[in-house]
Design a protein around this nucleic acid. Structure first.
Lengths: 215, 215, 215, 215
DNA sequence: TATGAATGAGAATTCATTCAT
DNA sequence: AATGAATGAATTCTCATTCAT
């Protein structure tokens, strides 16, 4: 029943939100980020947004649709943008693999910090809610793969990247980057990420932990 | 209020469970693993376990205590064991860093597959439930650090491991391994892990993705 | 935790109640009066009031708050009024001690009969529920003392009242009048009080049981 | 269904209680006295008595029977004794009305203090529980009347007591004494009663509050 | 005699949702 | 467009009671 909700909302062009609707969205994001969708009642959202519960339902129909209305537009905005703005531009500037990874991570961390709450909601519900997972995970995987694989292949052609199957490289990067975002923003609830941390991460992705001079 | 629950249960020696009580535990683990603690009602658990709801509460007092009674003993069992059995033994056999990582990952993946549901519960609630996170995460971090840091230092002395701050190495490994377990067992809900996957992971942790011959 | 409930409700100006809300109040008073707060379920109240249980909780939050919302406004109304309307006016008309006691008792009995159920609730819970006792008894004692002591002193000045410590007189009167109301309206559940009973009571308060001509 | 319970227990000769049974009785009396029968669970009693809940039910069948087993034997012991020991003896010693009232009140206050908890239970449940009231109140009234009326008539013959209908005198005394006990031991939960208080009460019962020299 | 284990029937409370105004 | 009022269906938890051992 909810399997088409994601598509629906994905394709719909979000109309401008009124002041009250904006308040609902903000309150919901914040509460969902903190306590999770399942542990947040519509009454709490209404109170935090200073609107009536009825208004929420008038606007969004069900609590689940509200969740999707929060997540989907940001997901749409998050990953596709990754393609053009981030990857494309960087690659064309003939940057090194290291430069690319650094810029990519910096850029996405920046974005995550600016959208921290919605990211927390996304990660939490991706882990917790089967419906969300089933709807969004394949989409994320597809989009991300279509953006990242060409880059990986490009760097392999340039000889900067180990000759592993591109999908293997991608999987490793996703595993690490996913772990990075989940641990920093959800588990540790960090409000900022130091340059050092980013450098460590870039270094790890590039070279791992082995002492290169050990033979 | 619940901050002592963890300690309490951690220190308590679980008494033997009757058949019905065993059924409660199994049903709860399975349901929590699938739908999450917050989306599982005690009525569902009772039905799945074929006991009365009252029996659950007689035994565990509250739903939250039930959750902790599922998680805590396994967490106790999971990590400390890591020290002696896994790390210790492996290190003493003078194995290489690569051998250690491979054995470690194989061993923990094996353990995870044997305790998949409880691991899923743990990861889900670690991400979702503030109380669980606050109680268990520091404990996990402590135990894990006390086990892993000596190993890291050992391999650094042997010159096999890059001369990075041990805590940095540890953080990177946790990030990756955490991402590995969370993605495989929670997001993808895999029932097995191929050798290839493990080899890829070991390779990535050791050497990253850079082409070593690129200079 | 409930110690501020009384104050809260005491100070709050009850808003107008809808028809259904009025029905809740009536049903609750009647049931609490008959069976006591602790032996009345919210389901029973809902059924008697022909509303849903949810409506009760939407309106009052908890069962205990409902109880206080029944009691407090009436207590407020009951005793202060005693001051101006009853005592004040009577005293100023230069009535005798006997006339005062008679009028006072008649007036309060009249009031009690008109508010019999709520009085029964009050007395029952005053006796039974520590929280109610702790919150309301001191308030009742204060208000009553502040009204009655001046009257006692006035009649002592006039020489109509025995030269006993005013507080002693007050305590005796409270003991007797409290016993009178509790026995008549709670124990015996009387629906009316005869003039004869009032006269007997007035006589007893004034002169006790001793034969005055016995010396 | 419970209307014969009282008679049953009243007529049964209580057998000696075992140690555990004694503990049950003590725990129940104390808890009922504090929180009331309706707000005390059998689980609490079992815990306080350090026996199993099953033992309580084995012994007493139902919670209500337990209550009656606590109350009835003491009520039996309380009032009949009043006849012989208290009233009879005092009257025959040709004591004055004042002496009688003083001795009576002193004696019953003493008894009440020695059995404070059971008295609190009795008063609370008399006020709160219809079944208890219906069963015990008539019995109390009967016994008390049969003891007190002869005394009243005796003092009237001696001319010490006002020439009022004996039942009227009795009712006034009950009202006052009931109010005295209820307020001191239940509402105020006093642990002792001063001589002064007793003197004040005796004085009030005898002479009321009127200034005798006012004519 | 004593009790550990189990439970059916309720209890208070919460929740997402509807609808008339 | 917004909401106050209302609720059916759960939800967590409690309770007196039973019974096999």
């Amino acid at each position: 029943m909810s399997s088409n909700l994601f598509q629906e909302i994905l394709l719909s062009n979000a109309s401008k939100l009124s002041v009250k609707q904006e308040r609902i969205v903000e309150a919901a994001i914040q509460l969902f980020a903190e306590k999770g969708y399942s542990n947040t009642s519509t009454a709490e959202i209404a109170k935090a947004a200073e609107v009536s519960e009825a208004s929420i339902f008038k606007q969004y129909g069900t609590k689940e649709k509200l969740l999707l209305h929060l997540i989907v537009p940001r997901v749409k905005e998050f990953f596709p943008v990754m393609a053009e703005e981030v990857i494309g531009s960087i690659v064309r500037t003939n940057s090194s693999l290291e430069g690319f990874l650094r810029a990519f991570l910096q850029n996405r961390v920046q974005f995550a910090l600016e959208n921290k709450d919605i990211l927390r909601v996304l990660i939490k519900e991706l882990v917790y809610k089967e419906e969300i997972k089933k709807e969004i995970l394949p989409y994320l995987a597809d989009v991300a793969a279509s953006r990242l694989l060409p880059v990986i292949e490009l760097f392999q052609e340039r000889g900067e990247l180990a000759q592993l199957p591109p999908r293997t490289v991608m999987r490793m990067l996703f595993t690490f980057i996913g772990g990075f975002f989940a641990s920093r923003f959800v588990l540790l609830n960090q409000d900022h990420v130091t340059n050092e941390e980013i450098e460590d991460a870039v270094r790890f992705m590039l070279d791992g932990i082995r002492n290169p001079s050990s033979d």
